[in-house]
Design a protein around this nucleic acid. Sequence first.
DNA 1: TGCATTTCTGGACATTTGTCCAGTAGAAGC
DNA 2: GCTTCTACTGGACAAATGTCCAGAAATGCA
Lengths: 187, 187
Amino acid sequence: MEKLVNYFGQMGFEGDNLKRIVDSFSLQAFEKNDFVVEFGKTSKHIGFINNGLFQYYVLKDGEEKTHYISIENTWFASLLSFISETPSQENIRALTNGSIYLINKPNLKKLVSEVPGFNAFYIGLLEQSICGIDASRFDLIVLTAEERYLKMLTSDPELLQQIPLQYLASMLGVTPRHLSRIRNTIR
Amino acid sequence: MEKLVNYFGQMGFEGDNLKRIVDSFSLQAFEKNDFVVEFGKTSKHIGFINNGLFQYYVLKDGEEKTHYISIENTWFASLLSFISETPSQENIRALTNGSIYLINKPNLKKLVSEVPGFNAFYIGLLEQSICGIDASRFDLIVLTAEERYLKMLTSDPELLQQIPLQYLASMLGVTPRHLSRIRNTIR
DNA sequence: TGCATTTCTGGACATTTGTCCAGTAGAAGC
DNA sequence: GCTTCTACTGGACAAATGTCCAGAAATGCA
């Protein structure tokens, strides 16, 4: 649980509170192609990624539409399903072997109401998530696929190196054929 | 402040707590074309819309790109700017005369930390916002403009009736010319 | 009511993006 | 070392979407 201790330590928790928080998570391993969240099932956990790459996607007319990929040291959630306790509209799958520190909703709620400061931490986490998702939504409307690609080149270079271009194309909202054209014109 | 009293009453607040909450807001009127939030300035408030239509947009190459429109009885915010206290990337403007109950951040924080239950309310509001924004982002990647239009027809009929099609086209990510084609093929 | 302004539609053509596919290169397994 | 699989590129053509624009319809205002 080392990463988790470090993370919450940096967030200002210590002693019994830190232990209480860390003990509420459990580390689960996933092999390449394992599902973490499956379409139609309600997601009961959120988590902090210890290592690995996880692909969020939906099947449409038999095709995978990737809308997000998370990497290590970031939070992981099928937000809509977890928050509203409804069946997930998406699949989340391990693209590599990896592991995630998971926590379920009852335990999360307990931390929020019982551990001093955790409530402020959770509000901060929600606010950060909103900023990230809102900015991403903003870019989808305001920027072209080429501009989004250029933005990723500078803002997420480590992600770009790790994931196959076909997934990236899907995230950008274009076909692999077209991403190839975009990459070609940039050179 | 009637709408606000009703709203927070339905949320389970009463007596002194309800009064304390409502008194933290102030009603501000806007005339058509007034700016509520201006590009480059940090947004200091969030609010609850008493009445009116408010357009969120950005100027790109001299053109307005509308990414959202809020209507009465919903919450209003330039989220990224308000939360992260950075200059707004967007303009928000009144499309009609209207008014908004506004609250600033210090007052909001006080309510969160001092009024019993407000903290849970605020977490719920953030969670609801995340669900809405995430679903919208999801649709932008997974659905075509035509599918998004059909979805709005059933999910937001009142909004469709109120806003000019040019703004709707922009929200859907197409030109007015193309929205006209979409509407034509649907008939 | 009538004029001015804004909004909406759709034609003609240009550009962008997708589809289908074949070829190459590199990685993985035996 | 050879085969097999997967990822990536780019050609040729098709389909979707944008640009420019003019006329029609709707709306606001005097």
